[in-house]
Design a protein around this nucleic acid. Structure first.
Ligand SMILES: [Mn+2]
Ligand SMILES: [Mn+2]
Ligand SMILES: [Zn+2]
Ligand SMILES: [Zn+2]
Lengths: 143, 143
DNA sequence: AACAAATCTGTAATCATTATAAATCAATTA
DNA sequence: TAATTGATTTATAATGATTACAGATTTGTT
């Protein structure tokens, strides 16, 4: 669990990304909120601390972090790009009722697909959609 | 393998979708080309036969078909929505070199994720990215 | 301080998708 | 058949997220 600003600075240095206040803050926002925020959510969250922040900077910073392999893009819904600092192989569940996105672990046995034995697999993505337990119980209560 | 126009008409009737020439043609385009086309590709393909076709009609028709459960949306890349008439549970591999999208079968054992035991799962999506065999051999030849 | 390089900001441009309203088509009835 | 009605299609405008760009600001170095 890397969260302190010092840790984040180290991570950036390792990947030859110059350090700036905005870049650290975007990174910090992602580490503190593992909720897979959108650009807009990141921008709104940081705007309180950095009134001069430009949304372009958020876009640019995220592209740098994604290209460097520190952050991954999550596209479950069209026109709702989200960002995840957790680079471990895991799946995402989006509740179609409340919109929340949950992580879940997936088995690497997915790899044992001999149809793809001659393919070079660089990136694996798994996402489900449905209704989360909380929304399920709400629906049942309102019956 | 449903492909004839009569079969497609039946499918539409079953789902209470009124039949029109444009709707049949969009459906036919999807059944003949299992290459997961974009709206633009579908529009361009049909425009030869239907010069008056509007792109809006392609969008509207696809939404109807998706809502009816006859077609699924494939969003691997942001800003590149694709459509697939194969509703069976299967995965997609996108080659980052040639852009081609391959189908591959996936094991339903993905379901055996007890983390999601209290979730209602309505939709499962799996996609990989990497380099396909053809592009791999091209790269090796050019070395 | 002066300079150069990198970063950030604000605005404009892009482009896929959606909204809207008029035109066309298809089915129904007088 | 002609008129009517409703559904579908078309063309155009609007939307909204992302990207391009150019000037302003910051940072580091001499
Ligand atoms: Mn995640
Ligand atoms: Mn497919
Ligand atoms: Zn929920
Ligand atoms: Zn390829």
């Amino acid at each position: 669990m890397k969260s302190s600003l010092e840790e984040l600075e180290k991570e950036l240095k390792i990947r030859n990304i110059n350090i700036s206040y905005q870049r650290l803050k975007v990174l910090e926002c992602l580490t503190l909120n593992h909720c897979h925020p959108t650009v807009d959510q990141i921008f709104t969250a940081l705007h309180k601390d950095i009134p001069t922040l430009s949304k372009t900077t958020v876009y640019n910073t995220l592209r740098i972090l994604v290209d460097a392999g520190m952050v991954r893009v999550i596209t479950i819904e069209e026109h709702e790009t989200r960002y995840d600092i957790d680079m471990e192989n895991h799946g995402h569940f989006k509740c179609e009722s409340c919109g929340m996105i949950y992580d879940f672990s997936i088995d690497i046995d997915l790899l044992t697909c001999d149809e793809l034995s001659n393919f070079e697999v660089n990136d694996q993505n798994v996402y489900f959609k449905g209704i989360c337990p909380g929304c399920l119980s709400n629906i049942n209560q309102n019956k």
